[in-house]
Design a protein around this nucleic acid. Structure first.
Lengths: 166, 166
DNA sequence: TTGGAATGTCAACAACGCTGACGTAAGTTG
DNA sequence: CAACTTACGTCAGCGTTGTTGACATTCCAA
């Protein structure tokens, strides 16, 4: 039992202990991932939910409420509460759809775009430094594993964003 | 401007667009990451906070309340609410410290261990399938980037867990 | 015209963060 | 021993963000 005691020795990275470390890495990394925007938003009347809305409206200008709902995976009541404050504060603007007048297309105002920039600058700074420290090959692996971890439905959403992402 | 239009051509993985994709990958992957345990816990009177407590008590049996507080990064009031229900339901047990009687050392009961297993089996299954699909090299990169993304303080916690991790 | 889709809104509630304040037991130090 | 500090518990109150359920409006489509 010197070596080769496991089924097929290239599979040591699939041991429960390795998987557990991956789980904990996700937990701690996600904390870091959200901490910079959270810090910026605290004190303003906004939170993580506002950040997400602003992010995806920036990402896909003109997206509809329903589309945003399916990306964010929350109820319309929950999203609506967030959108209302963003309208009221003049960060987001809704234009009635041309083709389908029931739809409301969402856009950031200049003020909204300014907030989005502040938030995403902070978040990108952390990603950039992590990416730089890890190197391109690690980044490739990072993205591969994350994609494999998504629910198929969410993966489609994610990949959909990629394409129309400018 | 055919190729080589960027400062130093190995750095294309640091463009804003690449970073944005990484950010979105974290967002969607984390949703998948938490969804299986969430599904199991819904209906029981527990939530994500209970899962985290149970996870780290399993991981470091005999850990103290204070230690758990620093790992989870929440207030004692918040943690206490969670621990109380776990005590009441007989999932977690506290033993007064021998050396320092102010400390309470936390352990899972059999019932608690059973819940932990159910939750971590589900979560590991997802990780395992993602790891398998991505391959060992990608997994290596995944872990490297996540570690680089953590706050230094949290990274120490994470690495501390690694060592005493069985 | 009738049904369903897209959206808004009111009300109530739950989970889980937070702060502030107070209490108690037990170590530690002067 | 007295005084301070640490580890923990607890009460009360509050904020964000998620949930259901119910109801209204507008408008596309069959």
């Amino acid at each position: 039992m010197a070596e080769g005691s496991s089924p097929s020795d290239g599979l040591l990275f699939l041991t429960d202990e390795q998987l557990r470390k991956g789980i904990e890495a996700m937990f701690f990394a996600y904390r870091g991932f959200t901490s910079d925007p959270d810090r910026i938003l605290e004190g303003m009347d906004y939170g993580r939910a506002h950040h997400r809305a602003v992010h995806f409206i920036h990402r896909s200008p003109g997206t509809t409420v329903g589309n945003l709902l399916s990306i964010l995976g929350v109820t319309k009541q929950s999203l609506n509460r967030v959108l209302r404050t963003l309208f009221d504060d003049g960060l987001v603007e809704a234009r009635v759809g041309k083709a389908d007048k029931r739809e409301r297309h969402l856009f950031l105002t200049d003020k909204g775009a300014a907030l989005e920039r502040m938030l995403s600058d902070a978040q990108r700074a952390r990603m950039r430094s992590a990416y730089r420290a890890a190197g391109p090959q690690a980044v490739q692996g990072f993205r591969t594993v994350l994609e494999a971890m998504m629910d198929p439905e969410l993966r489609r959403q994610y990949q959909g964003l990629k394409e129309n992402g400018q």
